[in-house]
Structure formats: structure tokens, C-alpha cells
Design a protein around this nucleic acid. Structure first.
Lengths: 249, 249
DNA sequence: AAATAACTTGCGGTTTTGTGCAGGAATTTA
DNA sequence: TAAATTCCTGCACAAAACCGCAAGTTATTT
């Protein structure tokens, strides 16, 4: 069999089945795996497929939609994400909500981190998927089109079955007296469940949302262990929260 | 044998078999391989064939196996998607797998359709979310980074709790004797569960995958109610499936 | 008809290409 | 963390391609 012919066959298989294994092709075509690897490498160099450990994937298959990164208060959120990422240790189970701050957190994760992230937010999960070593658990249920997360009783039941080490809440409003509040009934239910299922609750928010209010109550501030904003931890705006016993970063 | 005559013979062989070897031609015609090579070079310069290491390939060969355009069989999949979309009626619950064909289906849904789509495929769910009026249920579990779907026992348990009207399977290989087969263990489990949870099972595939085989068995063809390809339903390739009692569209 | 020029072909020697194999590194899996 | 795959690199060897040349053929000119 000619080399070009073989490569054409490989490409055909990749496009047909979206995925091929070097070992499988080696058996089918009766050449060494080294030869297959070299073929895959050449085809990958030509952009005809994507070489991965163990074989290759078709190009059309692996293309995914990347969430845009023109977000509100982008720089502030990056600072917050950095602080939050430092809290995560190898082996932890981490519950997260959705929201742009959480997306930044996903991007700020150190590449060698080995943890398990659990979320019902589709944009967040897309980000987590790009990370090389973390595991991703997706909470399933009905998809809310505007918030792009799964909501409902099934989602809450799934969260209840989890005992997470950490919970990162991207929050919309926090106030020393009224606690954390939000404006979407379904999202509130989810956040409540997440708080209950985590040993440590970390709230992420830009300073603008400090001391603000939303219609629906999620939980009081005594349920919060850590609060992260882009401000230095000794900023006077945060003093009431420090005084309330919350770790402020 | 004259040079022109020889080249005509070579060209004839190339068009007949799509491939020739320099060594083989040398033996057949009884001239040195150098002469054959020179002939092939000239014919290649005239654009009559494609010279490769060891021999030559016909032009049609590379045309067939090197689809340089964007998505493989994109047009075919659009045709399939149109046929599949016609099966969905308002109020239906529809289970779907992932895969490029299913993505096309999502894009082909009529804008006023009011149905509920259930899937564990993240790319598919992203497409469904763009639709104005359908409800989307996301199957949750561990996310498989390769296939971009949720897999595992929890996902299967969620599927089992559903009684769907329709199930659209984007399949990787189908054969009259071995049924539908695939190459990913987790995906196979999911597809099995989906088949069990739906009243009507519809398989979508491009004709190239008809009569092909993958390592892992999903189910026999008697579990399939409808098969959709880009071919007209009376194509002879599909006759065995029609004879087996499958509705072919 | 002879001479010459242009073309074709085969051959020896060299260069390039393709393939498998051995080992050690890297990655995945249990 | 350990074991098992898979990958990569360099190497050896064989097959193919290339190059130049010389001998043979064919076509053209004198």
C-alpha cells in the first residue's frame, strides 16, 4: 500500500468516525504503529486532522464555541479570579455557579491543578473543559436560556447528593444586613443548595455590588466563609464583613 | 512498444484501478522502472495523474478521499437534518445524542416548533439554546472532554427516568448483521439507554457509514424504527434495511 | 545515402524517502 | 504511586527516485 493511499484511508476513517486509534489503524492496515503515528503527524501538520494521544480526531468534531471575553469589569474580575484560584488545592471538589467572574476563575486555574469542578453553567463548563487535568461534572436539568445554566428540582437534587470542599458563588448583591440576594428564582434555589452542600462557601463579587440589594433572599452572611473582591482586604468598605467574622481576601 | 502507446496504457490502468505501482508497470510492459518513472512524470506534468512515491494515483482518487472543504459531508448532513426535522411535532419529547449530524438537525428545526429536547451533548445543547421556542433538558454527569458529552451512571439513570417520543441517534457505524456499533464505551452505554427510553428510535447517518463496523456493539437493527441518510429512500444500498422492516427516509 | 541532430532508453552510482526497531521519555490508567 | 501505553528520537536498511552518461532509434538535413 502506498503511503499516500494509506494516508487517504486514514483521513477517510477520521472523517467518517470522528476518531481513530493508532493501534486500530496499525492492525487494519498492517503497518507498525510508528508509521501510523508519522502519518497522523503529517496529516496534522497539513491541518487535515487533530492528533491526540493514542490516535486522532476529526477537525470538525473538536471545534467548540468559545465564550467571548468582552466582559464587564474585566480587569477587576481577573484579580478576583487570581485570589480565588489560590484557594483550590489538588483533589478538591469544587461547586461553582455561572457568571462572568466564574469564567475568569476557570481561566485562571493553574494548568497542573487536579481537582473536580461541578457546575450547571454551560459557559463555565466549556471553560473547564479546556483545562488539561481537571474533571468536570455537569449538573443536569432544564436549561435556562437567559442564564445558560441548568435549573430545577433535578439539578437541586443532584447538588444535594454532593459534599463539596469548596463552593464559589458569583453573586449579584451582598449586604451586611440582608445577606446575599439575587433576582432569579431558579438561580436562588440552586445557590441555596450549593451553600448547603459545601464545607466552605466563597463569594466572588466586584466591589460595586457590595452593599447592594436584589429582590430574592439567598442566605444570610453568616453562611459565608470567605468574600473575595478586587479590593485589598483591609479596604474600609469591607470592614463590616471582616467584623462579622468573614474571611476577606 | 512506442512511448505514446505505453503512456496511454499507463493512463488506462490508472483510471481503471485508481492506482499503479512503478514496479508493477515495469514488469508488465517490460521496460525499466526509470522509463516508467519518466512516463509518470510527464503524465503528471500534463495533469493526467498524480505521481506519488512508488507509483501514481488517479485524480478521482484524491478527489474522493481528500475533501479539502470545511465540514466533511456537510451538505449530506443538511439533507439528513431536513428529513429528521420533519418527524418532530409540537409537544414531543426528543432525546438526542451529539455529533455533527445532530448539530445540523438543531439548526434545521423550524423556528416555531415547540418541543422539548433532551441531550447530554454540550455542543448540541448550545445549538438548541439558540432556538426561540424549544425547551432544553441537559443530562448531567461527568463531562467527557473528547466527545463533549456527559457520561456515566448518573447520566444513564437520568435517561432511564424519561419516556421520550423520539430518539435521534447520530451513529458511527451500522451493519445489517452487527447492528449499530461504536468505538467509545461510555457513549455506547448512553445510546443503549436512550434506545430503551424512547418510543421511536431514529438513526441518522451519512451513507458512507452504512455497512461499516466499529468495535463495540450498541444494539441490533431490530431496535431501530427509522433510518435516515442523504440518499433517496429507494436506493439499493438501503434495500436490506427496508427488507428488515426499518422505515427508510 | 550519409551525416547530423534530437529523442529515447537502460545502467551505474548517489541521494532521498519510507519503514521498522530499540531505547528512553512522557502520558495515561489503575 | 506504580504499571502500562503511547510517543519520540536516532538508527539501520531497503526501496525508490534522481542524475549523468552512453548506446541505440528516429527524424531531419545536406
Amino acid at each position: 500500500m502506498l503511503k499516500k493511499e494509506r494516508q487517504a484511508y486514514i483521513l477517510h476513517q477520521v472523517n467518517l468516525h470522528n476518531k481513530v486509534l493508532s493501534s486500530g489503524l496499525s492492525l487494519e492496515i498492517n503497518v507498525s504503529e510508528d508509521t501510523i503515528r508519522r502519518d497522523l503527524q503529517e496529516l496534522a501538520d497539513e491541518g487535515k486532522l487533530i492528533k491526540v494521544h493514542g490516535g486522532a480526531l476529526s477537525h470538525s468534531f473538536s471545534q467548540v464555541y468559545y465564550p467571548s471575553n468582552d466582559v464587564y469589569s474585566h480587569d477587576h474580575k481577573k484579580v478576583i479570579a487570581q485570589k480565588a484560584a489560590a484557594l483550590i488545592e489538588d483533589g478538591m471538589f469544587v461547586l461553582t455557579t455561572g457568571g462572568t467572574t466564574i469564567i475568569e476563575l476557570a481561566r485562571a486555574l493553574p494548568p497542573q491543578l487536579k481537582a473536580t469542578f461541578i457546575s450547571g453553567s454551560i459557559p463555565a463548563v466549556l471553560e473547564y473543559m479546556h483545562h488539561p487535568s481537571i474533571d468536570v461534572i455537569l449538573i443536569g436539568d432544564k436549561v435556562s436560556k437567559n442564564s445558560k445554566i441548568t435549573v430545577g428540582a433535578e439539578a437541586i437534587a443532584q447538588i444535594r447528593r454532593i459534599r463539596a470542599d469548596l463552593c464559589f458563588l458569583g453573586i449579584n448583591a451582598i449586604d451586611i444586613k440582608h445577606g446575599i440576594t439575587d433576582n432569579d428564582w431558579d438561580v436562588v434555589q440552586l445557590k441555596k443548595a450549593m451553600i448547603e452542600s459545601a464545607q466552605k462557601v466563597v463569594c466572588l463579587t466586584i466591589a460595586e455590588k457590595i452593599n447592594s440589594l436584589q429582590p430574592i433572599h439567598i442566605d444570610d452572611i453568616n453562611k459565608i466563609h470567605t468574600l473575595i473582591t478586587e479590593l485589598p482586604s483591609d479596604d474600609p468598605l469591607l470592614k463590616p464583613y471582616r467584623d462579622a467574622g468573614i474571611e476577606v481576601l
